[in-house]
């Protein structure tokens, strides 16, 4: 180390303040737009249904969106790093069914909860190992494991739903509430805060963003980019494990058929919130907003007495709309190439 820069800092080299112009420049425009959409949406449903804006229903909405928030926060890391995880719905079902089975076999909740999360992390590790270390596009890997993971759960339970004794600790989490909000809702809030801290204030978060922007630049800076990419998928797998436990606890049963299409709801929430589908730019607040929007649509339609089968149709349409807004001028072919791209 022979070169040295002068240590005497000249006047005026203090870090520049965040000026309003810089703040505006950095604010995610689609996140701001989505806050507007929430206001309009809540207003419309509030007028159409007198119960929509009651505290009881809003608390109920918070419980309903909790699993999507938990997984959406982790999916924000995955998408920001330029990857995708389609297997989260299957992992939710796998963990829900498996933990119900383990409880039925007499295992204590104190063991079943960590096992459930670890099972999710394991599937994330499988995805990450193939995607990051063997350069199979994550779109392809997770499309395959999506089928495998649910398949294993179906094979084990033969498609039957496994009931959970409502005296067990896990079942009681499903009923617990604090300040009018369910334990699920609080857990989702904690996950969202933790996710924001991880994404914005740690090296891991910085590398996730950098990898989504220019992976090779991060690699050349001496970072083990494969490990970071694998960890992102481990994160989404673990979050799916948590969501599987929450869903099993709330429903009082675990089914290999649960959480069908859950990955679409989660991806819609993330993309709607303004996280760039091309990677390099992620927003946890946006994901929270996106989950509120998709959740409010499902909740509102049910309140208005619409068929529950309308929800997947609307969710799909919202996803297309979200992607359309997200692309803003860039084309779909570029996105396809990106999703199917091999690691460099």
């Amino acid at each position: 180390m022979t070169a040295r820069t002068d240590t005497a800092a000249p006047a005026g080299s203090a870090p520049p303040r965040l000026s309003p112009a810089v703040l505006w420049q950095r604010a995610n425009k689609s996140t701001l737009l989505m806050i507007g959409v929430i206001v309009v949406l809540f207003g419309a449903f509030g007028i159409a249904s007198p119960t929509f804006l009651t505290f009881g229903n809003l608390s109920n909405l918070a419980t309903q969106i909790a699993p999507a928030v938990v997984v959406g926060v982790a999916m924000t890391f995955v998408i920001t790093s330029g990857q995708i995880d389609l297997s989260v719905g299957s992992t939710v079902a796998f963990v829900a069914a498996t933990s119900a089975e383990l409880l039925a076999a007499g295992l204590d909740s104190a063991l079943v909860i960590p096992i459930g999360i670890a099972a999710g992390a394991f599937w994330g590790l499988v995805n990450g190992w193939f995607a990051a270390y063997h350069r199979i596009p994550p779109f392809v890997v997770t499309l395959a494991t999506m089928s495998v993971i649910r398949g294993i759960a179906l094979l084990r339970t033969e498609g039957f739903s496994v009931p959970i004794d409502n005296r067990l600790f896990l079942a009681r989490i499903g009923d617990a509430s604090f300040l009018g909000f369910s334990a699920s809702a609080w857990i989702a809030l904690v996950v969202a805060v933790a996710g924001a801290v991880l994404l914005y204030t740690t090296r891991f978060g910085q590398y996730i963003t950098g990898i989504g922007s220019q992976e090779e630049s991060v690699r050349r800076a001496g970072v083990n980019t494969r490990r970071v990419k694998m960890l992102a998928l481990v994160l989404s797998g673990s979050a799916a494990g948590v969501a599987g436990l929450l869903i099993a606890a709330r429903l009082g049963s675990g089914s290999a058929n649960s959480a069908q299409g859950f990955e679409l709801v989660v991806i819609a929430a993330v993309v709607l919130g303004g996280t760039d589908l091309f990677g390099g730019r992620g927003t946890i607040v946006g994901t929270l907003i996106g989950a509120v929007i998709t959740g409010a649509i499902a909740n509102g339609l049910t309140l208005l007495g619409m068929s529950p089968f309308l929800t997947p149709i609307v969710t799909g349409c919202v996803l297309i709309l979200a992607i359309w807004i997200n692309l803003r001028g860039r084309d779909m072919a570029e996105l396809g190439a990106r999703l199917l791209r091999r690691g460099s």
Binding site: Q206, G210, Q214, G222
Partner: peptide
């Protein structure tokens, strides 16, 4: 090709891979 990351700020690029830390945080 400079090996910079477009969506990271100037300081983040200058310190990419060696960010100063306070505990677990940058």
């Amino acid at each position: 090709d400079l090996a910079l990351c477009d969506t990271i700020d100037v300081a983040g690029n200058l310190f990419l891979g060696r960010e100063p830390r306070k505990g677990p945080f940058i």
